[in-house]
């Protein structure tokens, strides 16, 4: 793996110290992972939305579990925790009871996606400059 460029600092909304440990300075690989995240998340999130619309709480919990894991790989450890709480609630609450939490989750997911889009662009430009 390549040494981290001292100029690159991850967005303050992300768990930067964890990401630095995870990627060990390999910004090329970080770019790949962020790109994969942006490709994969919409696919997995569609399953979350479909399960919610169908009021299928076990599938909703399972689908969110996958998204939770993805958030972890791009440094959203706080969002991972929120997903875990929602996943736990799926086992004991009704769709009506989950509505407010679900809306909050969508907002957080959209914000996260936006941050990763910007972060991916930054990483790409950073890597291009390095070469």
């Amino acid at each position: 793996m390549q040494k981290i460029h001292p100029a690159f600092v991850f967005d303050e909304n992300l768990n930067a110290s964890f990401l630095e440990e995870l990627f060990e300075g390999d910004t090329i690989y970080a770019e790949t992972v962020f790109e994969d995240f942006l490709k994969d998340l919409p696919v997995y999130w569609e399953r979350v939305e479909a399960a919610y619309d169908e009021r299928n709480l076990p599938t909703l919990g399972t689908s969110l579990h996958t998204c939770k894991t993805l958030f972890g790989y791009v440094g959203f450890t706080d969002l991972q925790e929120l997903c875990q709480q929602f996943e736990n609630k799926c086992a004991v609450n009704s769709v009506e009871e989950l509505r407010v939490d679900y809306i909050l989750l969508i907002q957080r997911k959209e914000r996260a996606q936006h941050i990763i889009e910007k972060e991916y662009t930054r990483l790409r430009l950073f890597n291009e400059e390095k070469q």
Partner: peptide, 11 residues
């Protein structure tokens, strides 16, 4: 089943 996770592990 999550490709990113598998890629990390392989790496």
């Amino acid at each position: 089943d999550i490709q990113i996770a598998a890629d990390f592990l392989r790496k």
